[in-house]
């Protein structure tokens, strides 16, 4: 390698590491804003003021879904297997919404600690399988859980 090429190689490496470090600092500074949602544990720890809009993510607690018989109002419990939060919502839920399923809701908490959602999105997990396999796994009690996805990346205020 000629000295000129060596110099150019060094320049490219310097440029890459410089930009890399700058982006790493930038991304780290915006960490809280890049997180799409807070976990119920964050909310319990007081990460968000009542009244400020934010997203909360977690699993819908089994047997907690309460549907109103006359309106589209629905309320359910959300958990990250450490803390719970009650979510109330009025509107159409996505197809994948069901008990035990992960969801992300947009809204704010009121003074009673209830989360009033304006939008509920289903969070699908990374598991794909045919129905027969899912049935067999369920019978054996080996259904892959998604609990680990929640709360593992929590941001402390």
């Amino acid at each position: 390698m000629t000295p000129k090429r060596k110099q150019r190689l060094l320049m490219v490496c310097l440029m890459l590491s410089g930009v890399g470090v700058a982006v790493a600092f930038g991304v780290n500074a915006f960490k809280q804003n890049i997180m799409l949602f807070h976990s119920p544990s964050d909310v319990a720890a007081g990460a968000v003021e009542p009244g400020t809009p934010f997203r909360v993510g977690g699993m819908v607690i089994d047997g907690s879904v309460n549907r109103s018989s006359e309106t589209l109002a629905v309320s359910f419990g959300l958990t990250d297997h450490a803390e719970n939060i009650t979510v109330s919502f009025e509107g159409i839920l996505p197809d994948l919404f069901r008990e035990g399923q992960g969801i992300v809701a947009m809204g704010s908490i009121d003074d009673q600690g209830t989360f009033n959602a304006t939008e509920v999105l289903a969070k699908h997990d990374e598991n794909y399988m045919p129905p027969e396999v899912a049935e067999a796994l369920e019978k054996a009690g080996k259904m892959p859980g998604t609990a680990a996805n929640y709360g593992s990346k929590t941001v402390q205020p």
Binding site: L36, E126, Y128, P144
Partner: peptide, 19 residues
């Protein structure tokens, strides 16, 4: 980060979470 997008189903070091 917390994202709505699901994590990778196929990773180099793990069994793929896909049938």
């Amino acid at each position: 980060w917390n994202t709505l997008h699901q994590p990778a189903s196929i990773t180099k070091f793990d069994k793929p979470s896909m049938h």
